[in-house]
Simulated scan of single mutants.
Amino acid sequence: MSNLINILISEQLLTYWILIFVVLIEKFIYLPEKYHPLTLLKLMAYGMANKVVPSKPRQKRQQQIAGVLAPLILLVPVCTIIAVFTLLPQFPLFFESMMLLTALKFQYVIKQTKKVTQALRSEKKILARQMLAPLVLRETEKLSPMGMVKANIESVLLRFCYQYCSVIFWYLIAGGVGALIYRVLYELSHSWNVKQNRFKYFGVPTRKLMHILQLAPSFLACCSLILACNLRLGSAALIQRKSYKNLSMFVLNISASTMGISLGGPAFYNNQKVRMPNCGAQKKVTLADSQRVLIIINSATWIVLMTSFMLCALAYSTT
């Protein structure tokens, strides 16, 4: 019995128990968006963008250099604060938990998705568009009810991979510090999205870095979605050529194929119609799929956590 207790409280598994604790806290205790520390970071990112990317166009090379320096400037105060906390040995587990909790912000996406679904169910299209707007970059004013459902599902799936599973991945590798730094970079990349004409060149350096950091966790997240939904359909999508066109197509094609629905298609950005490739099956999305995707994500989350436990146990056994 004492050996079992020693194993469960070992350093490797203690990392896992912190993860479970923080996941449950984040799931059941909701911090309003305006009070979350990442909201301040996004405001800082927008403020910096207004300074270094003015409305007057600048040379491509100049914007790219600014895009390299800008995240470094914003990371310096964040890393300084992190360093101060990590140098306090009295409460290491507390600060580790707080950093992970800050980075693992995802329930806002779930709550907004439920609000969009409820508004569409009540046939309140204007309200649904307002609820959807914070989750997507595309213009929501021109979206039909089916278009809103599709955009909502795409946003939830992408954010589950990039915003949730990737944070867990980097936490297991680099602890709370790694998870928080990843999330800061993610928010900067999201604020300076290259799909916006203004950040077409400025946001490229951060976007390329995020692409590298998201490759492995996105693959693992998609595997969890396959196991949570449909192993046969998901496995078939893994060998399709279009799944490897880019990272977002990889996530959407595998997820849509697994769910047996069609995603992708045209979307409006900056008053311009962009034709995104169709992916998944032929079946059109329905309002019921908005609720279904949340159930699948919830199941996939527990698969991710169980896999994390096995990895932490394996790390213990090899030491």
Rank of each mutant, 00 (worst) to 15 (best):
V76A: 13
T140G: 06
G203F: 01
S10Q: 07
T318V: 15
L252K: 07
K284L: 13
Y186I: 04
E154T: 08
L93R: 08
Y316A: 09
N50L: 13
M306E: 10
L43K: 12
M146Q: 08
E11R: 13
N278E: 15
A133S: 13
L13R: 00
L4N: 08
L14Q: 10
Q282D: 14
Q282K: 11
P32Q: 11
M210I: 09
V274D: 00
R241L: 14
L100Y: 02
I297A: 09
S255C: 05
C79E: 06
V68W: 11
F85I: 12
G67H: 09
L43T: 13
V68T: 14
K208P: 01
L231C: 05
Q107M: 14
N152F: 00
T206E: 06
I25C: 05
T206I: 11
P134L: 00
L294R: 00
Y164S: 04
P54T: 04
K51E: 10
R129H: 08
L252V: 08
A236M: 13
N6H: 08
Y30D: 03
V285A: 02
I212K: 13
P57R: 15
F169L: 03
Y16R: 04
F21Q: 08
Y108V: 11
K114N: 08
W302G: 09
M310A: 15
L101W: 07
M48P: 03
L172Y: 00
D289E: 12
